[in-house]
Design a protein around this nucleic acid. Structure first.
Length: 268
DNA sequence: ACTATCCCCTGACGGC
DNA sequence: TGCCGTCAGGGGATAG
């Protein structure tokens, strides 16, 4: 499940490879990919012949900046992978590919077709959006946003309108480090507790980036290698195991249709 | 403003 | 062997 650290890992890998490359040809067999009434033809007209200036990330979105007024946004959702110079003979589930000069190809592999690709005008790439990224958001903005919500803190961390980049794995991990129970209403947390969550958020995401992300089922780096966070995770998918902090048995509950894992002893 | 629920899609897995 | 139900989970839509 690509979340912020996985997107960051992909961006770091791709950035030097595709900087300055020109887009020669686009291919796709999945109309749904483009959403909002767009299609491959409409996208092609605006991209073909353009140069990719840079590769960045906002939340879980991967952003290719073109040398015109557009950015190409890619969201991998749950099973999406970007493949660099993949082998056509080996891969199933390729939904989109982009030929670049120098005989290079960037392809989207996505088993469940939940991922999407959109062209977004640079003028709509607002600071407000960038400033909600989990690694950029200020403590004041984070705290003020949580103070306004009575939703459960687990859901608040997953809500991309509040903070961008956290998914189910890292929300569990962040709350474990912060010692906060996932069911707690966001607006019931005092400044001190929000500070703990804020610090844990930065710590967990940076640690996961250093490890190259979490490979559980589908996620791989564009070179096909696995990320290294999964073995060092503290709670996610550890129901019934002992908490690394205090030895209590880790519980798993459902919150809003998603699984949440936590230590019932130190997360309060 | 927020909650609850469904849907999109495919593959893995357990029960029989 | 294979059929069926369930689960994985981000985000959009919709009803309440």
């Amino acid at each position: 499940m690509p979340e912020l650290p996985e997107a960051e890992t992909i961006v770091k890998y791709l950035r030097p490879k595709i900087r300055g490359k020109r887009v020669l040809k686009l291919w796709s067999n999945t109309p749904r990919l483009f959403r909002q009434g767009k299609n491959l033809h409409k996208i092609s007209i605006l991209i073909k012949g353009k140069t990719i200036l840079d590769t960045t990330r906002v939340g879980k979105n991967i952003v290719l900046a073109l040398n015109n007024q557009y950015n190409l946004y890619i969201h991998l959702m749950m099973t999406g992978k970007l493949l660099w110079n993949y082998s056509k003979l080996r891969e199933r589930h390729i939904r989109f590919s982009m030929e670049l000069n120098g005989k290079n190809t960037l392809a989207l592999h996505d088993i469940r077709k939940f991922g999407w690709i959109r062209l977004i005008k640079k003028e709509n790439f607002s600071d407000a959006r960038v400033n909600k990224d989990a690694l950029s958001i200020s403590f004041e903005d984070f705290k003020n946003s949580l103070n306004l919500r009575k939703m459960k803190i687990k859901n608040a961390l997953l809500n991309q309108k509040i903070v961008q980049g956290i998914g189910n794995i890292y929300s569990d991990e962040i709350l474990w480090y912060a010692g906060i129970e996932p069911l707690r209403p966001a607006n019931s947390l005092n400044s001190k507790k929000i500070k703990r969550i804020y610090s844990a958020m930065k710590k967990v995401l940076k640690m996961a980036i250093r490890k190259g992300g979490t490979s559980m089922r589908d996620y791989r780096k564009p070179n096909g290698k696995k990320g290294g966070y999964y073995p060092i995770r503290r709670v996610y998918q550890r129901e019934g195991e002992k908490c690394a902090r205090d030895g209590a048995i880790i519980k798993r509950i459902k919150i809003g249709g998603r699984s949440a894992h936590f230590c019932p002893y130190h997360q309060t």
